[in-house]
Amino acid sequence: PPKVAILSATEMVHAKISSTVEAAALCKMAERGQITGGLLDGPLAFDNAISKEAAAAKHIASSVAGDADILLAPDLESGNMIAKQLIYLAGADAAGLVLGARVPIMLTSRADGALARVASCALAQIFIRSRLSRAL
């Protein structure tokens, strides 16, 4: 299953930082089987999510930390910044998909090229086929 790092500014839960509380709640829901299909951990700061060395330095024992397949941002603004940093600074490719509506919504940037648009279409198709196969 994919390893999902639920991002926040810190790896510690703080009542005044809502994204840490929300990450902890999502992890508890996964622990109870309310969320399935992935291995969740959070809150994790970005460095802990992508670097085993950073996670080890902070004594974070986790199979997700430093080896995340999915980075789950706490909101649209931070997710957008992370995505654009990965694209422009690390040469990453992107696909955009908004879930929660009756149908998936492909979401790309006006600056995205053809690859990002095709990847978004492919991701939408994978999502739809997955939903259809579960319905049968």
Rank of each mutant, 00 (worst) to 15 (best):
T20G: 08
S18A: 07
A135P: 03
Y88G: 06
R129F: 07
I128C: 09
H14D: 10
Y88N: 14
Q85R: 15
D69V: 05
R131I: 04
L39N: 10
G79V: 03
P74W: 12
V118A: 12
A45D: 14
A122N: 01
D112F: 06
I70T: 10
V4H: 06
V4G: 02
G79A: 03
V103A: 15
S109V: 04
L44S: 05
R134L: 09
R110I: 01
K3A: 09
I35A: 06
T36R: 12
M29N: 14
K52G: 15
S120C: 10
F127C: 12
K52M: 13
A90S: 15
I60Y: 01
H14G: 01
L99F: 13
I50N: 11
L136H: 10
E22S: 05
S19N: 08
S51V: 14
G113T: 05
S19A: 14
N80W: 01
D75Q: 02
A116V: 09
A95C: 11
L136Y: 04
Q34G: 10
P74E: 12
I87Y: 08
K52W: 05
T20Q: 08
A95V: 03
G96Y: 00
P1F: 08
Q34V: 03
S109M: 08
G100D: 12
S109H: 10
R32A: 15
A25M: 15
R134F: 02
L107W: 10
V13D: 09
A119Q: 10
A119W: 05
F127Y: 15
L76F: 14
A73D: 09
Y88P: 01
L26K: 07
A61K: 14
N48L: 05
L71F: 09
A55M: 09
I35Y: 03
R134W: 02
I70L: 12
R117E: 12
S19E: 06
S18R: 10
K58R: 11
A73G: 10
A30M: 09
Y88D: 08
A116P: 06
G96N: 02
K16T: 14
D93I: 05
A55N: 09
N80E: 04
S62M: 07
I17G: 02
